[in-house]
Amino acid sequence: MDINEWWGLVERAREAAGDRADDRDAPDDPLPDALTEVLAALEPARIVDFAVTAHEVTASAYRWPLWNAAYLIEGGCGDDGFMDFRDGLALLGRDVFTRAVADPDFLAELPVVVRMSRGERGWIGYETLEGPVREAYARAGGAADGFHAAVETALGGRIPTREPGGETWDVEDAEATRRRLPRLAALFEE
């Protein structure tokens, strides 16, 4: 799937979710259902293409600086947490995603991050982007038990990157973090 088409589908879901599209913490988060609705209008093969492109998009964010930003924002962030963070970041749309991958300190500008820094409710992450995509696949007539096999086939045996890109540092080293993520550090300093 063309990357512009992929981001266009995400944007259509965001538009359907309206002003509640930016926070995954709400118990009645409308964005996953909106994404399912948008994707369910596609043919099953196109939904598999969406899943493959989602894999590529989130893999592009597999970078230490962004992981360290997630660690700071969430008060810790392991492998699964960073996967959730990247899935949720993609749901924030192309502009936010692209800016955050290029400069993770940009995340300090997001209202949800500011709320989180004050100990208020909020979350960027999303448990798994696969859920709404798999549901759309089933609704569009794809074999419910065939989704994973179809995605694996479409991925063609690509091996995921084992080590995040970019330079890392000890995120618990306050001085190093202030140098690399000054705006986020200022929000989350105790």
Rank of each mutant, 00 (worst) to 15 (best):
R118H: 15
R24W: 07
D87R: 10
R99W: 08
V10K: 14
E15T: 15
T58K: 08
G93F: 12
T53W: 14
A90K: 13
V48A: 02
R94V: 12
P111M: 05
G125S: 14
P164N: 07
S60A: 15
R63D: 01
P27C: 04
V114C: 01
R139A: 09
E167I: 02
T98C: 00
P65I: 09
P160D: 13
E190W: 02
Y137H: 09
E163H: 13
W7Q: 03
N68Y: 06
P164D: 03
G119D: 04
A54F: 07
V114F: 03
G93T: 07
E135W: 05
T128K: 11
E172K: 11
M116W: 05
L110H: 15
L91P: 03
A70H: 09
F50W: 13
I47A: 04
P104L: 15
A69L: 07
V38S: 10
D29W: 09
P27I: 02
G142P: 00
L92C: 00
V133N: 12
V96E: 09
A136W: 03
R134D: 11
F50P: 10
A59L: 07
G119N: 03
D170T: 06
V96G: 04
L91W: 08
V52A: 06
A34K: 14
A40M: 05
P32Y: 10
V96S: 05
V38L: 04
R180E: 09
P182W: 07
T128S: 15
A154W: 12
V113Q: 09
L42I: 07
V96N: 03
L181F: 10
V113K: 12
D95Q: 10
P160H: 11
A34S: 15
L66D: 12
D49K: 15
G78C: 08
T153H: 10
A150D: 13
P104T: 15
T153L: 01
T161D: 12
M1T: 08
F147S: 00
W7I: 02
L89F: 05
M116A: 04
E130A: 10
I3Y: 04
R12M: 06
T128H: 12
G166S: 05
R94F: 06
D105A: 03
A150C: 12
L72D: 06
S60D: 14
A100G: 02
A54P: 08
W64L: 01
L72R: 11
I3D: 08
A41D: 07
A26I: 09
T58W: 10
A40G: 13
D29P: 02
E167V: 03
H55N: 13
F188H: 09
R46D: 15
D95R: 12
R178H: 05
